[in-house]
């Protein structure tokens, strides 16, 4: 069944979009990530203009992270104070990102920049995760106890000034890296249409040493607001949010997410991380191929006033 998207101004198949949303929702529920890093490239492969794919992706991420954050609130695994500081940084980063987004779009380099960011970030995060999880899998197989870093260990981040106490996370840390991390994620969120969970989660665990059980809830909390802000700003400055498209993706996504979460409970943590790493790497490789392979057509048309 075809449907005409009012903002993207093209006809698409409803079932393809619902299935896309459900598949990504399933994976995001399984791995505890927002799924924006999958939805935006998928939409671009499906010929949705990148500017609309990014803004609509951000809108879709709100639905899945809101749904996920609700269950963390219920379980008490959400640090509102840490989330709030991350968010303050996020708003600043996001504003900067929107500005860069509009600038690159006028230059005609937006698509390239989005693809490059995806390839570099997904490639790095996917590669690191794969190495880490394969090591963990080997360690458990050989019977050795996994080596965990003690929470008392400090790195350079913990020597920075302006310290603040985050009770729910049992953390006493400078606000500078927290604000910086939030700003970085906000910047990526507005340019890539992602929530940034796949960077936020490892950064909170490995850099700030936040207890793992609080990490996902807090990351989701901050993602809701960063993507909500990104959606708002894209809607007002670029008019690139397509609610029809976003709604179809969300509807598929929230259903898929709940089933995915259940499926995820049957797998062990390091198995999950290895699978997620492979998925992330696959997306990165697919996008990289497009950058290096001779395009079927070297010419492209864009409007002057709109994308």
């Amino acid at each position: 069944m075809g449907i005409y998207l009012p903002i993207a101004e093209i006809s698409v198949n409803v079932f393809v979009l619902l299935a896309m949303g459900a598949a990504v929702g399933f994976l995001s529920g399984m791995f505890g990530v927002g799924g924006g890093f999958l939805i935006t490239p998928l939409l671009i492969f499906y010929n949705i203009p990148p500017a609309i794919a990014v803004a609509t992706g951000a809108n879709q991420v709100i639905a899945s992270s809101f749904s996920g954050a609700l269950s963390h609130v219920k379980r008490g695994t959400l640090d509102f104070k840490l989330g709030g500081v991350l968010l303050a940084g996020g708003i600043v980063g996001s504003t900067g990102g929107i500005f860069v987004f509009g600038f690159l779009r006028r230059l005609g380099q937006l698509d390239l920049f989005i693809s490059l960011l995806y390839v570099v970030l997904l490639g790095t995060v996917g590669g690191l995760m794969l190495v880490e999880s394969v090591n963990a899998l080997r360690a458990t197989r050989s019977g050795a106890a996994p080596v965990l870093k003690k929470s008392g260990q400090h790195n350079w981040i913990h020597r920075l000034p302006l310290k603040m106490r985050f009770r729910a996370s049992k953390l006493f840390v400078s606000v500078i890296p927290v604000l910086g991390l939030g700003a970085g994620i906000g910047f990526l969120s507005s340019i890539m249409g992602v929530g940034g969970g796949f960077i936020m989660v490892p950064a909170l665990i490995y850099l700030l040493k936040v207890p793992t059980n609080v990490v996902i809830g807090t990351s989701l909390f901050q993602i809701i607001f960063t993507s909500a802000y990104t959606t708002l700003v894209h809607a007002t400055t670029n008019q690139t949010v397509d609610v029809m498209l976003a709604f179809l993706l969300m509807a598929g996504g929230v259903a898929g997410a709940q089933y995915g979460a259940k499926a995820g409970q049957r797998l062990r943590g390091e198995q999950l991380r290895a699978l997620l790493a492979l998925l992330v790497l696959a997306v990165a490789i697919r996008l990289a191929i497009d950058l290096f392979v001779t395009p079927p057509n070297r010419y492209s048309l864009t409007g002057v006033d709109l994308g």
Binding site: Q60, I62, S65, T231, M250
Partner: peptide
């Protein structure tokens, strides 16, 4: 758009 996303979630 944001409210719709939260409601759907």
């Amino acid at each position: 758009a944001v409210s719709l996303a939260m409601l759907t979630g």
